[in-house]
Design a binder for these strands. Structure first.
Length: 273
DNA sequence: CATTGGACCTGACCGC
DNA sequence: TGCGGTCAGGTCCAAT
């Protein structure tokens, strides 16, 4: 599922539901989910810890504990549900039970998702290579230009590179490039500062709108109580092949850029040298 | 170094 | 119904 707006939606759910709760029991149902420490150490380390804060960095969900953090990444198909510990749905990989209230269930059909229990330096190391948070102050065309300078790689896979900017994925990359009227194949280093400023603004606008509508429930994303996001109703190009561009009416086209399905308006997003 | 292609998994969907 | 191919909100690693 998840890009920045979907993870942020879940973060807000968790901030309201489990901050202040203490872990009483952990059930790892799929050992491949746990990347650090060992499965045994993971459960032992969580027991008795209280959740101080629910945070997010890019697409990573950070549940800060008394010392260190439980870090979750949902990858393509991960979901977080808050529900009774004894009532898991299919494909549940991890259940974290608290002293009161519902348990946290990590559910993931494709099993790409990851979990870590790390001390503070480990958290820092895990996140060290991430680029800037696009919704924090200071994110603009100049920041993009500094990261992209001289690169010949196409702008779309550049945006998907989490070292350039944290949290943008396939949906919001397509939507932001449409908003900024930039063809996804354009070499990143060839974009003027003016166009990079437009793009930075488009990224911010698109991500904020995604959060406002609780994310995009296209394939798998739902909130922690199972509620669907509504941003799929506001998408302009993503998965709208053949439908009219909301700006000019031309039919949206699908192409492949950097091995990812990509959606553009061929009139609004012309290739240019 | 920068960039690309395949791997990692499972399930849904489409055409034959 | 069954089979094969394609596709899916992501990231990592090996090969150019």
């Amino acid at each position: 599922m998840p890009e920045l707006p979907e993870v942020e939606t879940i973060r807000r759910d968790l901030a309201a539901a489990i901050v202040g709760r203490r872990v009483v029991r952990t059930e790892v149902r799929d050992a491949s989910l746990v990347h650090a420490p060992s499965v045994a150490g993971f459960g032992r380390g969580l027991r008795g810890k209280a959740v101080q804060r629910a945070d997010r960095r890019g697409k990573y969900l950070l549940l800060h504990l008394d010392d260190g953090a439980l870090v979750l990444h949902l990858m393509m198909s991960g979901r977080i549900f808050l529900r009774p510990a004894d009532d898991p749905v299919g494909h549940t990989r991890l259940v974290v039970e608290f002293d009161e209230g519902p348990a946290l269930h990590f559910v993931d059909v494709r099993r790409f998702g990851r979990a870590w229990l790390l001390p503070p330096p480990g958290v820092d190391a895990l996140l060290a290579d991430l680029g800037p948070e696009p919704l924090e102050p200071g994110f603009d065309g100049r920041v993009l230009q500094a990261a992209v300078g001289g690169r010949r790689r196409a702008i779309k896979p550049t945006l998907l590179d989490q070292r350039i900017v944290a949290g943008v994925g396939n949906i919001y990359a397509d939507e932001a490039l449409w908003l900024a009227r930039i063809h996804p194949d354009t070499p990143a280093g060839s974009l003027s500062l003016r166009r990079l400023n437009n793009l930075a603004r488009a990224i911010v606008t698109t991500l904020r709108a995604g959060i406002e509508y609780d994310g995009t429930s296209f394939l798998t994303h739902v909130g922690s109580r199972g509620e669907r996001g509504r941003y799929q109703e506001r998408l302009n190009v993503f998965q709208r092949t053949g439908e009219p561009c909301p700006r000019c009416g031309r039919a949206i086209e699908r192409l492949v850029v950097g091995q990812r399905g990509t959606h553009i308006c061929p009139r609004c997003q012309r290739r240019r040298g």
